[in-house]
Design a binder for these strands. Sequence first.
DNA 1: AAAGATTGACCGCTCAATCTTA
DNA 2: TAAGATTGAGCGGTCAATCTTT
Lengths: 147, 147
Amino acid sequence: MKDSLRPPRPDVRPSALLSVLASAHRLQAGIETALEEVGLSMAKVGVLRTLATEGQPLALGELAERNQCVPSNITQLVDRLEADGLVRRESDPKDRRVRRASLTDAGRRAADSGGAIIEAWEQRVAATLGEDATTLQRALDRLDEKR
Amino acid sequence: MKDSLRPPRPDVRPSALLSVLASAHRLQAGIETALEEVGLSMAKVGVLRTLATEGQPLALGELAERNQCVPSNITQLVDRLEADGLVRRESDPKDRRVRRASLTDAGRRAADSGGAIIEAWEQRVAATLGEDATTLQRALDRLDEKR
DNA sequence: AAAGATTGACCGCTCAATCTTA
DNA sequence: TAAGATTGAGCGGTCAATCTTT
């Protein structure tokens, strides 16, 4: 993936495609670095915030849907969050197939601190884009529509 | 679309940050899927095209620099490309520390077919963006400057 | 059989530690 | 010692196969 994101060499005109991918990659890298300082990642914060917003334990399948990923991904992410002491797995007595993830106190605090960092970046990005935000938004939407 | 007729509510408006990241992710996913049909990935095509453009075997460290990634990444990527029969590792008699990657015939063909697929997407993206391309480009550049 | 979750194997990427050669 | 490459461990993601429970 990284290879496709290589920066333009002086003699070559950068394609819009590669520019978009590279920019997004660098943007994400910046956020990941910021989150590292509190021992978190975007993936982890995503799960923690989903749980915090929900306010109650969520089945892993639910978590996968909300985070737009595959179930096995959540299984492993929750493994790590559990090892970090941020989340606990609970059984559902109603249906013994389902496992629910619930936030620990440390998990709630992590959701807050990680969330604050991401919101700060959202502010920064919004401010940087300014009036171009809507243009950019529409442009990206058009790209998505093309599948 | 009636949302655009009134001021966006702060708590509901999707953040530009997450939109950009999600769009880029979907865009890349589309390309990866297209490349799957010829058994390639963006990472692999990146390396193959670098070698094809260079026209001669490149030291793995060179390859890492051009593709803006860490050496160990290239080591493993070349492992897989070698297993695919697309590149070969060669020794440098001048300096026995360096290993060079060279394209096989199949590798040259793969660089072409993969390159064609990516170029087709570049065309598509450029056409979709149209006149917004420069605005988008400047906006993304500003984001990068903010690190 | 179908749903929910997990496991194992892989890709792509990173870092730290290691090995070889200069 | 330093440079070039590799190895090992880990994160985040996918898919296919599996196990348990419904």
